[in-house]
């Protein structure tokens, strides 16, 4: 390559890299990803009766295996499979849609989500939002719980990391639709998400809030905060079952 070709290549590469964040602004044409996407799904879910989808959650349907087969009968999660009980309906529905269109990468979840209808996603989302179940999580990553607690309650402004509680609520039980509960979440799952935001495998955080935080946190910090959050009492149901 002559000099001009080198310059051209470098320029193209630089432009491409610069365009990445801009491209992330609209992740997929079919999936609401604006700031209040979770609210949009929650509003749609209000018309769906979760009781109609309880059987799908517990027993599955043909090719769609049951949610409970991996996430547990009480939606409590296990290992790197997340707790679903007590997450908001809007958040769950947004994630199912993200799997269905490939915005979130997980082969098992993509397989299932591709086969679900919109109503099924919304019904399952409400089913788990209304579920209250005790914690089945605890520290398992060898994280420094004192450091994790510091990050959860106060954050670390030296590295521009706000407290987890400053967005996820004063008990980490979530805030309305967009900010999921983190309390009693399986630590391997929390850790995997922080890692996925760091390396770009997960990008569907509003205003890229979690990307920045995940980049700033060291591996040890990620373990610490994941383990600490696993020690907290589980969230209550986000909505009454007969809501």
């Amino acid at each position: 390559m002559n000099l001009r070709a080198h310059v051209l290549f470098a320029t193209t590469l630089a432009l491409g890299l610069t365009a990445l964040p801009a491209a992330a602004q609209k992740l997929h044409p079919d999936v609401p990803d604006e700031g209040e996407a979770a609210e949009i799904y929650a509003a749609r879910a209000a018309d769906v009766d979760p009781a109609d989808y309880a059987r799908l959650a517990r027993e599955g349907d043909g090719e769609v295996w049951s949610c409970a087969s991996c996430h547990g009968a009480k939606g409590e999660g296990n290992g790197n499979i997340p707790r679903l009980a007590g997450l908001s309906a809007g958040y769950i529905a947004k994630q199912l849609n993200a799997y269905a269109v490939g915005l979130r990468i997980n082969h098992n979840m993509q397989y299932v989500a591709e086969k679900l209808s919109q109503d099924e996603m919304l019904g399952l989302a409400r089913y788990y939002a209304a579920m209250e179940s005790p914690s089945a999580a605890g520290p398992e990553l060898g994280g420094d719980l004192e450091r994790g607690r510091e990050l959860a309650i106060h954050g670390d402004w030296d590295i521009d990391v706000p407290a987890c509680y400053s967005c996820h609520g004063s008990s980490a039980w979530g805030v309305e639709q967009a900010f999921p509960s983190l309390a009693a979440q399986q630590p391997a799952y929390t850790y995997a998400q922080l890692a996925a935001w760091t390396d770009g495998r997960r990008q569907n955080s509003p205003v890229q809030l979690m990307q920045g935080i995940s980049h700033a946190l060291s591996d040890a910090d990620k373990r610490a905060v994941s383990d600490y959050l696993a020690t907290l009492p589980a969230p209550p149901a986000q909505e009454a079952p007969d809501d």
Partner: peptide, 21 residues
């Protein structure tokens, strides 16, 4: 809408957690 509404909500009314905080 692009940067603030996710936290402060579109009508600017803010958000509370399940404890009412």
């Amino acid at each position: 809408e692009a940067n603030c509404a996710v936290c402060h909500s579109s009508d600017g009314s803010g958000r509370q957690d399940p404890n009412g905080r």
